[in-house]
Design a protein around this nucleic acid. Structure first.
Length: 277
DNA sequence: CTTATGGCCTGTCAGC
DNA sequence: TGCTGACAGGCCATAA
């Protein structure tokens, strides 16, 4: 589910509701996520303050007092919601509310994840760079390190589909299936094209459309295709702006040709057979 | 090194 | 109505 824009939207909301708060209690109902939550998680996290909230790729980084950082990854179906007295309308989900952090103002952060592909891991803040999950990640797509020259070089001599490279977190960090499809439509490039056949000019197009699409999606609070929810349980609004994702057989907004769907690297890839080459 | 594949989990939906 | 299989926005381990 959540790709960079969803995690970034979540981060911005949590800055308002959770930064500066202290974690006064924690409870785990189901520790078996992508990796089992460590035995000493509750003991180590209780009593710490939430000093800052950052993001790297699709990981949320809660900077805690005492040089600890809580790494959160939402996997395919995870959500982290902030529940206060004024948000009592958010229903409890005993089956999938796996972890709960009680804050010092009476509110709580609740991690819900039906498929349990997510991750919740406490790490030493001084060793963040060597943490396995973050090591080896490519540049942030919205930063200057991701530019036409970088992308052009990264695609040379690569026979894999350009879409697969865009989703490869070592090449560029934070893009998943939905945004890869949307970016390539806007570049008029077919998702299955070999990366090595991308021209220098096209690398420029991909870099600029990547930045534009992601920034617009963040502005819309992300995309809810199925079940993404923000920290208040609300869906993202970018779904209304999707041009190709999930639109198989429906007319292309640009030319009217039915959108096609084919599988690349086990993921559905949507494109317009007339607009994209 | 690159690329392809299967596995992890549960929920939902289409088709029978 | 109930069953079955396919599929879902992520990542990782393994093999070729």
């Amino acid at each position: 589910m959540p790709e960079l824009p969803e995690v970034e939207s979540l981060r911005r909301m949590l800055l308002e509701s959770a930064r500066g708060r202290k974690i006064v209690a924690a409870a785990i109902r189901e520790p078996r996520l992508r990796r089992t939550v460590a035995d000493d998680f509750i003991r180590k996290i209780t009593g710490r303050g939430i000093d800052a909230i950052d993001r790297r790729a699709k990981y949320l980084l809660l900077r805690l007092s005492g040089a600890a950082t809580l790494l959160v990854h939402l996997g395919m179906s995870g959500s982290l919601t902030h529940r206060g007295k004024d948000f009592a309308d958010l229903e409890f989900d005993p089956a999938h509310d796996h972890l709960r952090l009680e804050l010092d103002d009476g509110s709580a952060l609740v991690y819900n994840d039906p498929r349990r592909f997510g991750l919740m891991k406490l790490v030493d803040s001084f060793e963040l760079d060597s943490v396995q999950e973050l090591r080896g990640l490519g540049p942030e797509p919205l930063e200057d390190g991701f530019n036409p020259g970088y992308l052009f070089r990264a695609t040379r001599r690569r026979r894999a589909a350009i879409k697969n490279l865009l989703m490869d977190q070592r090449i560029v960090a934070g893009i998943g299936n939905i945004y890869a499809c949307e970016i390539l439509f806007r570049c008029r490039i077919r998702p299955g094209r070999a990366a090595g056949r991308i021209t220098r000019r096209e690398a420029g197009l991909i870099a600029s459309h990547t930045k534009r699409v992601l920034a617009n999606a963040i502005g819309d609070g992300g995309t809810t295709f199925r079940n993404y929810r923000d920290s208040r349980g609300q869906p993202g609004r970018f779904a209304a702006r999707l041009q190709v994702y999930g639109r198989e057989d429906q007319p292309c907004y640009a030319c009217g040709t039915p959108i096609k769907c084919r599988v690349l690297g086990q993921r559905s890839s949507f494109y317009c057979p007339k607009c994209q080459h």
